[in-house]
Simulated scan of single mutants.
Amino acid sequence: MTRRQHKQAVRSAFDRAAASYDGAAAVQREICHRLAGFAATAPCGGTPRRVLDAGCGTGYGLGLLASLCPQAELFALDFAPAMLARLASGRPEKTTRGTAPGLVCGDLEALPLAGGTMDAVWSSLALQWCDPALALGEIARVLRPGGVAWLATLGPATLCELRAAFAAVDDAEHVIRFHPLERWREEAARAGLDEAAAAAPRVHALAPDLRRLLRDIKAIGAHSVGGGPRPALTRAHWRRLESRYEAHRRPDGMLPATYDLILLALRKR
């Protein structure tokens, strides 16, 4: 898959998922709360006046961001027009300035914003679909000197249970391998962003069976992004997949899906 094809797949997948996203995004909401707590430990210097939610989706993180930066003018950017339409049709959180966020359709790798105009950038579970050098270069460009970026992305152990189970079925790449923390650190340094804080916790989605786990992954749009064509699963393949995944069932009877979370607070030099 070329870079252009990848970007088209990302946009199409999340456009299709806009209507079902909120009903299946429990882990995504948990990660937003984790990012908010993490961001509070590495605050922006001074009072932030202009703050960007880069990859806002349907807008769940905006309420947390409004509480974190109550005096700021918020901007909500997403690559998928249907996600922004879903946000616009709701009632997004307002700051104490009494204004709803400005909505921007744009690419994290080519932000449609002037340089040095943002005091802070927040991004929760969007950067994993991006080239780290391009996305961090753009975040650095739009931040003012001393501005901070609060980022949550995914590492290579994400959905490790599913990857292991599929390995018993065929040789196709069914699960995307995301970039490790070290790559994000390297590209941040190259972009002129100094690390203020970092963490790498594990978060788990839970479901009573594999079909429900996969249904939730499909509902948030992540199932069809990346990789090449995948062979259709036969009934025998599905039974083998379920059997292998059963090895991960927890004592409480639930099946987990691991999200290898990376949290970064980066300050522009």
Rank of each mutant, 00 (worst) to 15 (best):
E195Q: 06
G137H: 10
E138D: 13
F166M: 13
E182S: 15
G116Y: 03
G98L: 13
A126I: 00
G192D: 00
H174V: 08
L162R: 05
A188I: 01
W122L: 04
P101G: 12
G98A: 13
S124G: 08
E182P: 04
G137P: 05
R185I: 06
C160D: 12
L136M: 03
H179W: 09
D119Q: 05
L151R: 01
K94W: 11
I139T: 12
K94R: 15
A157I: 00
A165K: 13
A140Y: 08
L181S: 03
V142G: 08
D119V: 02
G137N: 10
A196V: 12
M118V: 05
D107N: 15
L136W: 03
D171Q: 12
A196Q: 13
H174T: 06
F166A: 09
V142H: 07
L143Q: 03
G115Y: 02
Q128F: 03
E138A: 10
V121I: 08
A198N: 00
F178V: 02
K94E: 15
A133P: 02
D170Q: 07
C160T: 11
R97C: 14
S124D: 07
A152W: 00
E195C: 09
R163A: 12
A126V: 01
C130N: 03
L113G: 01
L151E: 07
P132C: 03
E161I: 11
G137Q: 10
D131T: 06
L125E: 06
G137K: 08
D119W: 01
L162Y: 03
M118N: 06
A149F: 01
A110F: 12
A133C: 04
G192K: 00
L193Q: 00
W122K: 02
L125V: 07
L127D: 08
